[in-house]
């Protein structure tokens, strides 16, 4: 039986339409999972950011706890290493006090000077970024240390000198003899002529100079 050409045409057309439908659908659906993948990546990134944020919050809690536990304890220690406007006077006062029992022949005070100290155990710290954008927040590890030096010339007998050294180690401030030059005093039994250079330090805080390194 001869086929109706119109019918054949319609059948081919129908098949072509179905094929186009398939292809169009495939194209659309092929694109949709890509969008979903994009969203999944977005969720993954946001989740990662969330995790970072949780870590940040944990860091805050840990740091707070550390400060709560150590701040007070360390404060007692740090009192011995203060540097402020009254430190010079305080140091002179202490020295005057501990040299009462010896003969202070001469005293020289070097003006306060500052040195830089960079912590070896506490490296520089940068607050981690949580999202892609954020301020660059850096915590440096360089601090300024103030130094006070006094050179004393003392005449004392051996035992008085030992007492002087003993007193030196038991003050509210930290004193350390960095130079001791002892000679016998021929005029006094057990006499000693001593030249003592003392140093005391005070911590000023973070280094403010931009050229610290």
């Amino acid at each position: 039986m001869k086929k109706d050409p119109a019918l054949q045409h319609v059948q081919i057309l129908a098949v072509a339409i179905l094929a186009i439908l398939f292809m169009a659908d495939g194209m659309l659906q092929g694109k949709m999972p890509q969008q979903i993948r994009g969203f999944k990546a977005g969720v993954k990134a946001a989740t990662e950011e969330g995790r970072k944020y949780e870590n940040l919050k944990a860091d805050i809690a840990d740091t707070r706890q550390y400060l709560e536990e150590n701040k007070e304890t360390l404060a007692q220690l740090f009192e011995k290493f203060q540097s402020n406007e009254g430190s010079d006077i305080e140091i002179n006062k202490i020295i005057t006090n501990i040299t009462k029992k010896v003969i202070l022949v001469n005293i020289k005070t070097k003006p306060k000077y500052t040195t830089l100290f960079i912590g070896k155990e506490a490296p520089e710290y940068t607050v981690p970024l949580v999202t892609k954008k954020g301020a660059n927040l850096v915590v440096g590890n360089a601090i300024d240390v103030a130094k006070y030096e006094q050179t004393l010339e003392i005449r004392a007998n051996y035992f008085e000198f030992l007492n002087f050294l003993h007193d030196l180690a038991n003050q509210d401030r930290y004193f350390e003899p960095i130079s001791l030059d002892l000679k016998p005093d021929p005029d006094v039994p057990y006499g000693i002529l001593a030249k003592v250079k003392l140093i005391t330090i005070g911590i000023l805080g973070y280094n403010v100079s931009k050229k610290r390194r």
Binding site: I60, L77, F81, G119, E121, Y125, V145, I203, Y206
Partner: peptide, 18 residues
């Protein structure tokens, strides 16, 4: 955190210096 870390770092640096 930056503020707290600064405080903590200062304590640690002070301690290390001492």
């Amino acid at each position: 955190l930056h503020k707290l870390k600064k405080e903590q770092q200062l304590l640690q640096l002070q301690y290390e210096t001492i």
